[in-house]
Nucleic acid binder design. Structure first.
Lengths: 112, 112
DNA sequence: GTGACGTGCAACCGATCGTTGCAGAAAGAG
DNA sequence: CTCTTTCTGCAACGATCGGTTGCACGTCAC
């Protein structure tokens, strides 16, 4: 039985650049495409596209301020994404544990 | 401070199809490109490419058996991937908690 | 008003995920 | 042994994605 995963949300946090962007937005509180690109190895336009993706899945929200577009993390949505990470991890972990138990059982029965 | 993440390993489990493949391999113990594609909405060739990716990052191993190529999950490597999921989740979780605490502190100081 | 700054849009390139088509090796039926 | 089936790999192709450059447009500051 597999875990229910929102593929859009998952793939949004699947990109390394987007993960770093979320990190930066969390530490700085907010940021624009330009300020983020200063701390990233990609151009402003690439950052803008990533911000559009994050906005589409609700991980960030934008508030226009003059000529700037200031982005901020949606904490509830990020919490949901983190929960999905935990779910998938827990599901695989449980399977690995089960396999380990079975392997140990076989080991024991062979030794006998 | 961000978490150390193996981007290759992460992007290997970032693909929804590859996650389902790992699920199938874990439940069935082993499988070939053909048997996996029976349970997936993609063709055998697509599955074969995904298996190549998973093999490259060490998440599966192949054992040729006659005309078949039987794949099996490397449990240690999958455990490492799960650990990375947990790490990133925990890091974000900690940040969200900190933000929540700060927000509550502000709330209190304003009420006073 | 002019210049500088922040943004959006369009075109383009390379990698990735998916497809179809075909050729080759191994197992089974006659 | 031959023929057919089955599992596989390789090649070409299209769509999408992450990245780039170049340019045009609003907005703030002097």
């Amino acid at each position: 039985m597999s875990v229910a995963v929102d593929d859009d949300l998952w793939s949004a946090i699947g990109d390394p650049t987007r993960r770093r962007m979320l990190d930066l937005l969390l530490t700085d509180g907010a940021g624009t495409a330009t300020t983020l690109s200063d701390s990233l190895p990609v151009t402003r336009q690439a950052v803008a596209k990533h911000l559009a993706v994050l906005d589409r899945v609700g991980l960030v929200h934008v508030s226009p301020a003059g000529r700037e577009r200031r982005y901020r993390v949606d904490e509830a949505q990020l919490a949901r994404a983190v929960a999905q990470l935990a779910d998938v991890g827990a599901a695989w972990d449980a399977r690995l544990q089960r396999i380990k138990r079975i392997a140990e059982a076989i080991e024991r029965s062979q030794k006998k």
